[in-house]
């Protein structure tokens, strides 16, 4: 299963994300967003850990609010994350640790994660799919 694919959008960055579970969907959405930032990672083996806690009104909003918080951490700390260790995961709440590394620079800026035309759903085969639009 492809983790994510970039879709056509006239002005912004739109991605379709897949995951065998909601947790994997969140991870793959994070990885898709990071690809959009085109990071140049530093030559270092040091692994960085960041705590993250988000509460939202429903699952679609939770995905967006989670990505927005990760985007904040990425940009303020100049880091990217390659894995998430979930400590708590419900449709309106997530608690997790992000694992990542330092970044030299980003090739592109993402201004924000939008709720526009947001779609998060479970497919008949039990896997999850989401479409997210980023303002770039």
């Amino acid at each position: 299963m492809k983790k994510f694919e970039l879709l056509e959008h006239r002005a912004d960055l739109k991605i379709k994300v897949k995951g065998s579970s909601k947790e994997e969907l969140f991870l793959n959405a994070l990885l898709g967003m990071e690809e959009g930032l085109r990071p140049e990672t530093k030559e270092t083996k040091e692994e960085i850990k960041r705590e993250i806690r988000i509460k939202s009104i429903d699952l679609p909003a939770l995905l967006i609010d989670f990505l927005s918080e990760v985007l904040y951490l990425i940009q303020v700390n100049k880091e990217t994350y390659h894995n998430i260790e979930f400590k708590k995961f419900a449709d309106t709440e997530v608690e997790a640790e992000l694992l990542g590394q330092k970044v030299e620079r980003f090739g592109e800026d993402i201004k924000a994660v939008t709720y526009h035309q947001l779609d998060v759903h479970q497919r008949k085969d039990g896997t999850w799919e989401a479409t997210v639009l980023f303002d770039v």
Partner: peptide
């Protein structure tokens, strides 16, 4: 990033208030 974050913060706060 400052303006982008302000807009992000208030969208997040306003959606539940609006609905």
């Amino acid at each position: 990033g400052l303006g982008h974050q302000v807009c992000t913060d208030y969208l997040r706060e306003f959606i539940p208030l609006m609905e």
